[in-house]
Amino acid sequence: MAKRYESIQVMLSASHRRSIGRAAAAAKPIEACGLLVGTRRTGQAEIESITVLANYTRRDRHSYYEIAPVDFLRVENEAHARNRDVIGAWHSHPHGPILPSATDRDLAWPDWCYVIAGFRDDGTMQLGAWRFVDNRMIEDQLSQ
């Protein structure tokens, strides 16, 4: 059994990566966000579908995001009906790297998957996957 602080493999298809990229690019300069639905196994998270949701935060949406609780409930119920789980969330950093911010870390739920879409200086998108484990964010391995 993998130790908690070891990286896990986060499986995210090319199609889902493109969907996140399109939503993140379309939302610029504000942060885009959504939920990740799939299954967790030891050492692995398989993302089977993603949702694109409104950024609900009342703070500055250029630098913060929040998912409306009612949106989470709807996605949770849909996942439950398919015997799946909401296993994480994704959001974009329109002006920054894929590293989790201090706010990301402070508000992270333990062992949940957080995918971050960032943009390089040339405008191309990059993705990173993270989990909050033992009071720190550890980077996971994204694969298809």
Binding site: E31, C33, L35, T57, R59, S63, Y64, Y65, E66, I67, P69, F72, L73, E76, N77, A89, H91, P100, S101, A102, T103, D104, L107, A108, W109, Y114
Partner: peptide, 10 residues
Amino acid sequence: VTIIPAVAGG
């Protein structure tokens, strides 16, 4: 009764 955690960050 569903418990929904807040999902937010920056």
